[in-house]
């Protein structure tokens, strides 16, 4: 093998890189350079308007971040959102996939129906939900019909975030459902047969065969869910018209980053620092998730 490696000539290396060049170029320009630039920005006070000026401030932005009450509220909202939405959408995706895989009539029809929310643009979806959440809207009417009190979904700080959670669970679960569905069809029938011979009932088969077999997929779904939910932006942006209101209740970390970067004039560096911290938080959450799921597989 080592001998072969030495054989690469300049010609081959050049050829290889030439083939990769468009991809490398695109990656460098649109991903790597912006990341480096964001890191650079986060240590500076940046004034982009009126001729860019960069004023090195060291860790100043990060120190201020620790004392920023709105950043704390945003992080807390985001964590609440992640902790509720990720398990809920994962569970719902699994249940939907299992029902679709059970060999019922009209399976294909339901597969399409379930998947429709994912195909809809999230902006359109949010606008539709905002109509439904209106004080005189569909959801309050339905609640009224079964004798429950309605809510001011858009205006009450206590229910605005749950309103977004419900909407998002409903719209993202189907995407993960398709991933589960593919994985479910990969589980060999022989495993189920063996379980049947051992006398396992439906729930035992689901819990002791299906769920462990799906573990790698679950891990993927949870990580993708974590990353996606930590980056919640568009729904709360549209919901609150960009303010994160009512009373900061729909303010998420990414929305706050956006506000600092584009609404205020001289806080681009601070926004970059916040983005960097968010990236680290997501990294830690992902690593924790991986650690836990690995520990379980050892058992």
């Amino acid at each position: 093998m080592k001998k072969e490696r030495k054989k690469y000539t300049l010609y081959e290396i050049g050829q290889g890189y030439t083939f990769m060049l468009p991809a490398i170029f695109v990656l460098a320009v649109f991903i790597i350079a912006p990341i480096l630039y964001a890191i650079f920005l986060s240590f500076h006070k940046v004034e982009l308007l009126g001729g860019p000026s960069y004023d090195f401030r060291g860790l100043d932005n990060f120190v201020k971040l620790m004392e920023d009450d709105r950043a704390k509220i945003a992080l807390w909202n985001t964590i609440k959102y992640v902790v509720i939405v990720v398990p809920a959408q994962t569970l719902l995706a699994l249940v939907l996939a299992a029902t679709l895989n059970a060999g019922l009539k009209g399976e294909k029809f339901f597969r399409i129906v379930y998947f429709l929310p994912t195909l809809t643009s999230s902006a359109v979806l949010t606008l539709i939900f905002m109509w439904m959440y209106n004080q005189n809207g569909l959801i309050n009417k339905l609640l009224g019909m079964i004798g429950l009190p309605g809510y001011n979904w858009l205006g009450d700080p206590n229910v605005a975030l749950p309103a977004i959670m419900i909407m998002n669970i409903w719209s993202t679960a189907p995407f993960f459902m398709t991933i589960y569905l593919a994985a479910l069809q990969d589980i060999p029938d022989s495993v189920y047969e063996a379980a049947k011979i051992d006398g396992a009932n439906f729930w035992q088969k689901f819990w002791y065969v299906t769920v462990p077999q799906l573990k790698p997929v679950t891990s993927f779904v949870v990580i993708m869910g974590l990353i996606g939910t930590f980056q919640l932006f568009d729904q709360s942006y549209i919901f609150s018209k960009g303010t994160g209101g009512p009373n900061n209740s729909t303010l998420t970390v990414v929305l706050l980053i956006y506000q600092y970067a584009f609404k205020n004039l001289g806080t681009m560096g601070y926004a970059a620092a916040m983005a960097l911290v968010l990236a680290i938080v997501i990294l830690i959450a992902t690593l924790l998730q991986r650690k836990f799921s690995k520990e379980e597989t050892l058992h």
Binding site: P157, T243, G245, P246, N247, N248, N264, L265
Partner: peptide, 22 residues
């Protein structure tokens, strides 16, 4: 002044909760 937009965002957020009696 230049910072009224910042004051406005924070005022609106907190004033709303007072307005709702929270």
């Amino acid at each position: 002044g230049p910072y009224l937009p910042i004051a406005q965002t924070n005022f609106n957020n907190q004033f709303l909760s007072a307005f709702l009696g929270q």
